[in-house]
């Protein structure tokens, strides 16, 4: 059982790390600011979500698990809001560069 849970943690955290990696590659390769904003807001939030998912089996209690989920939810909210704020500022300046 423990072994299965560890395996689950490893899989989820590795997947999360992969999305952070992909998001950074997107930041490095995407041609303009708005497309880079996509890379930042989509990939990293999913990456953090998977890392949190992977850490869930390792916490002591249900409330500790909820705390991790609350942290993820706050990051999602902040990420969604900042992506819109930055995206709008970019568009106001006439877009790409």
């Amino acid at each position: 059982m423990n072994f299965a849970l560890d395996l689950f943690s490893i899989a989820a955290i590795a997947a999360g790390a992969f999305f952070f990696f992909a998001g950074s590659v997107g930041l490095l390769r995407f041609p303009d600011s708005l497309t880079r904003l996509h890379a930042l807001s989509k990939a990293d939030n999913l990456g953090l979500g998977l890392v949190v998912l992977g850490l869930l089996p390792r916490v002591g209690s249900l409330l500790d698990a909820l705390k991790l989920l609350a942290i993820w939810a706050l990051v999602l909210l902040s990420g969604a809001a900042s992506a819109q704020l930055i995206g709008r500022a970019l568009r106001r300046r006439g877009g790409d560069e």
Partner: peptide, 8 residues
């Protein structure tokens, strides 16, 4: 203030 800021 724009919508995203109000939501936040």
């Amino acid at each position: 203030p724009q919508g995203a800021l109000l939501l936040l």
